[in-house]
């Protein structure tokens, strides 16, 4: 539905539009991944692309995560621009050696001779009752690795545009896409295209507290902020977007404005992205804080299957609201 300068699309459609646009503009770009072709993508993201672009550009691959990620690195070293799709982040650990030991190291280790212009997309996220082996939030693992750029597409615009910018980048870029959002609709500008991949983004301006998050979790933060507004609390919501290298300035600017910070993410608390953001705030804006930085993270358990337990294992909108009220000594 086209409403003037905006168009309403699903998150799934946004990803697909990004891939299509990329394939149309550069013949060296090709998509490879498990079930991306004949099946149409495990989440129907690439449905129809095989018919449109042919099997040279849309390559089904065997269940060989390490093999096809490694092949993507090789192809990238030899002048191609592969988009490698790992069906879900849960399987990405099988390719971790290729990502951490090859993609991330080659440029530095070769003294600047060999860059790896590879984009890896992977579906991720919790909240679909898929139990412990299909519900990991592995963003912190990847964000830990020097040499990678790590992006989390929490919004429709990013789902559409991050890929395009990543494909122009000379270095390996990991893009996390959130399966929980696939059917969610949102309006994006009809002119939406490549987006910046260096800065965090203030999604909602506020003055009382900074709620900082990334990925699908930002929607819980936004819902919480909306609810808090009815109670007269004006929360600022920041989408980190880029988990490596982290954009300090957007965070610190917000801290200086609100003097209070709540960090929210699904990943386990120990050594997660919030741990890093918290440390940076301590190092650079300690005296700006009215009270200690607080975190809401995933409970440190393998994610269980039943909905009530899964919900209890993750920060929920109500948890964010309660935590903010507690921090502001509200009511």
């Amino acid at each position: 539905m086209n409403t003037g300068n905006f168009i309403k699309i699903t998150y799934r459609e946004a990803i697909k539009q990004g891939i299509r646009e990329a394939l149309q503009k550069d013949e060296n770009i090709f998509l490879m991944g498990e079930d991306v072709g004949h099946y149409g993508g495990a989440f129907a993201v690439s449905k129809g692309l095989l018919q449109e672009f042919g099997s040279e550009r849309i390559m089904d691959v065997p269940l060989s995560e390490s093999g096809f990620v490694g092949a993507g690195i090789g192809a990238a070293l030899s002048g191609m621009r592969p988009i490698v799709e790992i069906m879900t982040v849960n399987f990405s650990l099988l390719a971790m050696d290729q990502i951490a030991n090859n993609a991330a190291t080659l440029l530095h280790m070769s003294g600047g001779q060999f860059n790896v212009p590879l984009v890896i997309r992977m579906g991720c996220g919790i909240g679909r009752q898929l139990a412990a082996q299909h519900s990991h939030s592995w963003e912190p693992l990847f964000a830990h690795i020097a040499g990678l750029k790590v992006l989390a597409a929490g919004t429709h615009e990013d789902a559409r545009g991050m890929l395009l910018t990543a494909l122009d980048d000379p270095d390996p870029v990991i893009i996390f896409e959130y399966t929980f959002l696939l059917n969610k609709e949102a309006e994006i500008p009809t002119t939406a295209g490549a987006v910046d991949i260096t800065k965090a983004k203030v999604l909602r301006q506020g003055t009382d507290i900074s709620i900082i998050s990334y990925g699908a979790c930002i929607h819980k933060a936004l819902d919480a902020a909306k609810e808090l507004a009815t109670a007269g609390i004006n929360a600022e919501v920041i989408d980190l977007r880029i988990l490596r290298p982290i954009d300090d300035s957007t965070i610190l600017t917000s801290v200086k404005k609100t003097n209070k910070v709540l960090l929210v993410e699904d990943a386990w608390a120990s050594l997660n992205v919030s741990s890093e953001i918290s440390a940076r705030i301590m190092e650079n804006a300690f005296y700006e804080l009215d009270l200690p930085v607080q975190r809401l993270s995933g409970v440190e358990v393998p994610i269980p299957y039943p909905k009530h337990l899964e919900d209890a294992a993750l920060p929920q909108t109500s948890d964010i609201i309660n935590q903010v009220k507690k921090m502001l000594q509200y009511g």
Binding site: G72, L77, M80
Partner: peptide, 11 residues
């Protein structure tokens, strides 16, 4: 490096 070699040959 075996998989990388395959990717280079694919290119």
């Amino acid at each position: 490096h075996l998989a990388m070699a395959v990717g280079m040959a694919l290119a």
